[in-house]
Design a protein around this nucleic acid. Structure first.
Lengths: 219, 219, 219, 219
DNA sequence: TATGAATGAGCCTTCATTCAT
DNA sequence: TATGAATGAAGGCTCATTCAT
């Protein structure tokens, strides 16, 4: 039976298989995740047969289903792996910042540099991930919220610290920040022209600084 | 790069079907466009069979292909219809503005109000449209660029007028503006919680004003 | 714009699947070939859905596409299987002939007997195979040329041996021979009346002998 | 209802519309026949939509169905028009021949010259006509039989006259003659190489003469 | 009579998923 | 655990035919 084919028959009770603990399994799990990242980037989620992922991961098609419930879960897992890594890195990098605006600067700089130097990852996160059914959106929601929360936290903290204008709606600020670099990177990924997005980072930070930081001239 | 995945074996003899002039045909063309908008919003582009559009438009499946070359072209046409309408409306509404920042305010306000009051349209523009293959992205590029150009034009003009900080990269400003309301609306559409995005307009404009406008305190 | 007018510009990289070596696969490949032969004969190529072949072969529709690139390739493969068998058999049978006219006699006799005793095969080779698009004609060309070459080779050799009139254009002779038994068998297959074509073999050989053989009365 | 789509529902009682008497109608009938000849030759029967015929004939798609019951009948009518013309011409041309072998010579010469100078007609008669369902074969049978009868009549008469070997089975002789020039012309039509088939006529007649004519050396 | 827009049945093909080995 | 051959549902699209005008 092919019961995953239609949403209606979606087995709501299937627990997500999750990241295996056994290190050997974990290696194969990660191999599939990396292969999927590459394959989705190359072909696009909807035009990427599971068999392409399997081939890139050097496993049989069926093996995918020993590690993931279905194709959607593969996409979700790729996102989780990548976004969690981003979050961890940013948390680490921002530890030593003197104020929250600086943390935002570090975040934007790190995020844009990371994606700007990894077009495959950028393509996945900016483009392929959006090719999603509502199932996927649900699966993505939690880690994405965490990433959002990270940014919004910086804004709120910055407001408490007095570096960020308290009149700003922090949630909107988060959307401004995210929306801004998201748009910058998306345009870059989709552009035929080859240019270096990381060169845009200062421009982005300048405008975000204007938008957020109190007493701008004294920055 | 994944854009070139399919060679565009362009059928040299198929004239683009475009918008029919004959009013009776035009009516059916528009009926299909509206049906497709609704169907894509409801099911998502990839999970929406052409037959669903046909049913919503009260025509036979084959009739779709008298007006559109294929399913992709339907999506593109819906986008063109809608974005052109938005552009026209905004151009009209901004005619009387005294300065370019005001124009941006009108644009943001109008855009957010329009989508905020039409969840189906918002879902289509913010979510379904992004579910696109590279072909679709190409088809969408032109009118989208026009919309982008409208915003960027306001920014540039504002800089000449002295209302917008000339140190800002206008292109990045465009991405900030677009990225910001885009993110705000996307989150709203995807949110389970029912709230009124139009209530966020002032917050958005406040932060965009900070980001762009010169001499903010004296505004 | 009509980017995607046709689904697939035939994948130029798809290697012809060919006859599998793995004996288990080969068995299924042959099962499909036989099923296709029967199905094409029964319904005619253009009126024979792939699903009919699958059903006759006791496989799922999709399985056909694990062995053949498309429906056309199925037809081509059936032809290749059958014509190659004919060629091999004839080559073997004609080894011991004392002269080339005898070889032609054996060829005609064997061909007409084989088809005359296998109406399904005859129907396929004489009728269904001709229902072909130019793609199919191209796919068929090589083995057909081999069969033609076999006949023409006999004629040429016969002329050297002095059994066949050297004034004859060997290529025309090939067409005479082939055209003659081809026509005889085609008429038989299409005829409602049930008769035994093999009874016509001697008549065919008599007239071909007149046409080709030198010094007929002394044969 | 689309009841012609499947054979089962074929309306056996629909009388063939036949050639109209009204001269104005007859002109349009012939226009469609000529357009169909060209269209079938160009695209192949199965790859030729009725709309292509209509366009070539400068009529609306629906108009075809005022003159012909269905697409099959169009093909049949083209064949009838053409073969009847051939038969009439040959009957006329052979009137003055001194013996039946001469008549056969005239027939072969005329047939091969006509088709050899009209690749479109040749393509239709040799290739497209064979792309036929059994319905078409039935519709074609009568005029084809007449053509066959013409040839076979010449053979029988020639045998009575003593110019053609009486030991020959006249029916087989007919198949030899027809099969031979049929094969010659088919190969020519399908060949990429551009050559002049009419130059093969003498070769064909030489070999047919050997096959049929009594006392060849004294010819 | 002529038109051509509309119909909708039907088919080739893909590919997520399963399961025998 | 891993394999990969097999499955078969599903959908985009075509086109012969009809019928309202």
């Amino acid at each position: 039976m092919h019961f995953m084919r239609t949403r209606l028959q979606k087995d709501d009770f299937s627990e997500p298989k999750g990241i295996p603990n056994d290190p050997r399994k974990r290696a194969k799990y990660l191999a599939i995740v990396e292969a999927a990242l590459a394959a989705f980037s190359e072909y696009g989620y909807h035009d990427c047969p599971v068999s392409k992922i399997a081939r890139k991961a050097n496993v049989a098609d069926g093996t995918i289903y020993l590690y993931f419930a279905n194709k959607e879960e593969v996409l979700i897992s790729v996102f989780q792996e990548k976004i969690n890594r981003l979050i961890t890195d940013i948390e680490e990098l921002t530890e030593d910042c003197t104020n929250s605006w600086e943390k935002i600067e570090v975040l934007v700089r790190y995020h844009m540099t990371t994606l700007g130097n990894d077009r495959v990852l950028a393509n996945f996160l900016q483009i392929q991930l959006r090719q999603s059914s509502s199932n996927i959106r649900i699966g993505i929601a939690a880690p994405l919220k965490k990433f959002y929360g990270l940014i919004e936290g910086f804004v709120l903290k910055g407001q408490k610290e007095g570096v960020i204008d308290s009149a700003i709606n922090a949630n909107i600020a988060r959307k401004l920040i995210f929306g801004c670099f998201d748009e910058v990177i998306s345009c870059w990924v989709l552009s035929r022209r080859q240019y270096d997005v990381t060169e845009r980072i200062d421009d982005v930070l300048y405008i975000l600084g204007r938008a957020l930081v109190v007493d701008l001239e004294n920055r």
